[in-house]
Design a protein around this nucleic acid. Sequence first.
RNA 1: GGCCCGUUGGUCAAGCGGCUAAGACACCGCCCUUUCACGGCGGUAACGCGAGUUCGAUUCUCGCACGGGUCACCA
Length: 557
Amino acid sequence: MSIDYKYLSELLFPDVTMTEEELLAKYPPRNLPEGAKVTRFAPSPTGFVHFGGLFPTLVSERLAHQSGGVFYLRIEDTDSRREVEGAAGALVKTLAHYGIHFDEGVTVDGEAGDYGPYKQSERADIYHVFAKRLVAEGRAYPVFSTDAELEEIKTADKKAELKAVNWETDADSRREAMLARRNFTVEDVERELAAGHKFALFAIAEGDGTRKRKVNDLVRGDLLLPENDEDVVLLKSDGIPTYHFAHVVDDHLMGTTHVVRGEEWLPSLPKHLQLFSYMGWKPPKYIHISQIMRQDADGSKKKLSKRDMGANLDDYSRLGYSPRVVIEYVMTLLNSNFEEWRAQNPDRDYTEFPFNVKKMSSSGCLFDMKKLDDVAKNVISRMSAEDVYAQLCGWAEKFEPDFARRLSDKDYALQIISIGRGGKKPRKDYGTWVELYNYMSPFYDETFAVEDEYPENVSRADIKSALTSFADSYDENDDAGAWFEKIKSICAPLGYCADMKEYRANPDAYKGSVADVSMMIRVAVTGRLNSPDLYTVMHILGRERSISRIRDMINKL
RNA sequence: GGCCCGUUGGUCAAGCGGCUAAGACACCGCCCUUUCACGGCGGUAACGCGAGUUCGAUUCUCGCACGGGUCACCA
């Protein structure tokens, strides 16, 4: 007995009154210049923004804005169980912090744009219009479940069970179960509905899994994927669509031209293509980008997961990485010629870089903290002192309030930050605000501390003597040359060599060199074996503080 | 297990039938240097394996191996 699909569709979706034409009229084609791309970031609001999520996001953003198109934010909150309160707003803020802005879609306090709503949970009516059509055309069918069964499906136990199935022997039984589900009568449906049971809607797969189809991916080229032969869940029993159906409907309605997503979606691409074809719509172009991996202790590669350091974008703020650093690093991974371009255009904004899909890698890459640090030093070294100061203050206010207070003496801070800055080859002393904080601490009495000890083999008497002579002869008005000459003159009486070349040629004739004498002063003044240029440091500190630190050291010895 | 994607130095990678197989990070050495750095110069280090196609394969084809992904009323 054949089924009256039109009747079935009315049975299943009595509340759907809007026609497809009426609906489509609300989503007219976008009026954009030739070649403009429409892309989106479509996360599920499950919490923080993942570092890996930055990749497709940045690609999407570049593609859209580089072409004069539209980049929008759609929230895929179709799984209420996983939703985290306030995640959407936090997400917008985090991305804004990284300089990634949306033209339309969900905002911190609402929505903007003509193609909404942009939250999938608010689009149920829309999906139902198309779902109804699919039923009427005999391409989708309901599967009923009692509340108890639903409860079972949605528990963790059931999911664990599903994970543990033996794939080898289970394939056939899964297929059988699928075929059995397609078998029902209108009377069955009427009875289930009358009993108040909920249904999920499945699409009938018409593909032949043994046949392959050529499918294009913009970075991977032509792929040979099997036709889809698995019925896809369109609507869950709560009436909310699955990702698969929502993706097809929304991206068509919202005019998305390029879908950029992780490669984990590649296996379900045939499902999506099949749905587009059922709907009679042209699918968007796809870009599947590879996952970011991390090196595991045993040497194997693992997907960068939530718990890993550097996975949460907020970690970077805390560690003091400028958002620009993170973006710069992502760009170097995203486009293989970005570093080369950067070398030639050290001061241009990254948005001026001609982003090219062809230069994207299709193999996965390992997250490399060392490389990030190198990028960080480069980026920070090119920034102006004012810029560094402003960002440092922002970080300090959040994570080192005491330091932030000290920073309020802007001129003083600027003097320190300006060391080695500017010019063709600026110094690369620090890449993060944490490092800069540490770099600056000897300049403030509150954080000045003698952290490094004098080496054991250096005579304390010599140190005392050198420090005393130096303090006695110190004149703040000396230029760098005169200043250093005085240090040299301390050397000979103590048996240290004032000339490095001479010392190197004949090291056994001396107790040490002028380098060692400088070290004695450096430790007294900065508390460390390493510091920026001592002459500069002493001038920033001022005579008073420099000399009193030296006197303190003499007394301590 | 089926299916899909991938495989050039430790890492990221250029390469697109003929190259002494770029470059960056890391590492090592030297130089510069009052320290550490910065910088400069140089060095170690790679086409997973096996067949084929070809005058010639890192590059094309096939198999194998390895790595990753996926197989939910999650996304």
